[in-house]
Simulated assay, not measured.
Amino acid sequence: MLAANILLSACSHQTKVAEDDVVAANIGVTNIELLDQFVENVQKNKKDSVRVIHYTMEGDPIFQTLHFNGKNIDYTYDSTED
């Protein structure tokens, strides 16, 4: 009798996470202080941006970017890697 080997693999994207990204995963949030700093900079009318990465149940990243130009906050939602 021949033994069959079965390999199962889930989708896994190799997304580069920068040190200046806020990462929200099921184990907690990393770099939350960057989001706090963004809020402080907005209150001071200082230009800033922050990227928050959330992961789906399958492990695919969802990117949310907040960019403040000194007057307005632009919000971008990117799920292209999902």
Results as ranks from 00 to 15, higher is better:
Ile6Ser: 02
Met57Phe: 09
Gln43Met: 11
His54Pro: 03
Ser12Tyr: 09
His13Ser: 15
Ala3Asn: 08
Asp82Val: 12
Leu34Met: 07
Phe63Cys: 09
Thr65Ser: 06
Gln43Glu: 13
Ala18Asp: 15
Asp20Gln: 13
Thr56Asn: 07
Lys71His: 14
Val17Asp: 08
Ala10Gly: 14
Gly70Gln: 07
Asp78Leu: 01
Asp20Thr: 15
Asn69Ser: 00
Gly28Phe: 01
Lys47Gln: 13
Asp21Glu: 10
Val23Tyr: 04
Leu35Pro: 04
Asp78Ile: 01
Thr56Ile: 05
Lys47Tyr: 05
Glu58Met: 14
Asp20Ala: 07
Asn26Met: 03
Glu81Trp: 10
His54Arg: 11
Ser12Thr: 13
Lys47Thr: 13
Leu8Lys: 12
Val52Arg: 01
Val23Lys: 04
Lys71Pro: 07
Tyr75Cys: 11
Thr65Glu: 08
Ile32Thr: 05
Tyr77Gln: 08
Tyr75Asp: 12
Thr30Phe: 05
Gly28Leu: 04
Lys44Trp: 01
Asp82Trp: 08
Asn5Met: 09
Cys11Trp: 09
Leu8Glu: 14
Tyr77Met: 07
Asp78Thr: 04
Gln14Phe: 06
Val39Cys: 14
Thr15Gly: 10
Gly70Pro: 06
Ser9Gln: 15
Ala3Arg: 10
Gln14Asn: 13
Pro61Ser: 08
Gly70Asp: 06
Ser79Gln: 11
Asp36Thr: 14
Phe63Ala: 12
Asp20Ile: 09
Gly70Met: 06
Ser9Glu: 15
Ala18Met: 13
Lys47Ser: 09
Val50Arg: 07
Thr76Leu: 06
Ala25Phe: 07
Asp74Gly: 05
Glu81Tyr: 13
Lys44Tyr: 01
Ala4Gln: 12
Thr30Leu: 06
Lys47Ile: 12
Val22Asp: 01
Ile6Pro: 02
Cys11Ala: 13
Asn45Glu: 11
Arg51His: 05
Tyr55Asn: 09
Lys16Trp: 06
Asp20Arg: 10
Ile6Trp: 02
Val17Ser: 08
Asp36Gln: 12
Ile62Leu: 07
Ala3Asp: 08
Thr65Cys: 05
Thr15Gln: 11
Ser9His: 14
Phe63Asn: 11
Lys44Gly: 05
Gly59Trp: 04
Thr30Trp: 00
Val42Tyr: 03
Ser49Met: 08
Gly70Glu: 03
Lys44Ala: 13
Ile6Ala: 01
Asn45Trp: 01
Val50Glu: 04
Ala10Thr: 15
His67Thr: 14
Lys16Cys: 11
Thr56Cys: 03
Lys46Thr: 15
Thr65Gly: 01
Ile53Ser: 01
Tyr75Asn: 14
Glu58Val: 14
Lys16Ser: 13
Asp20Phe: 08
Ile73Glu: 06
Gln37His: 09
Asn72Pro: 07
Gln64Gly: 02
Asn69Ile: 11
Met57Val: 12
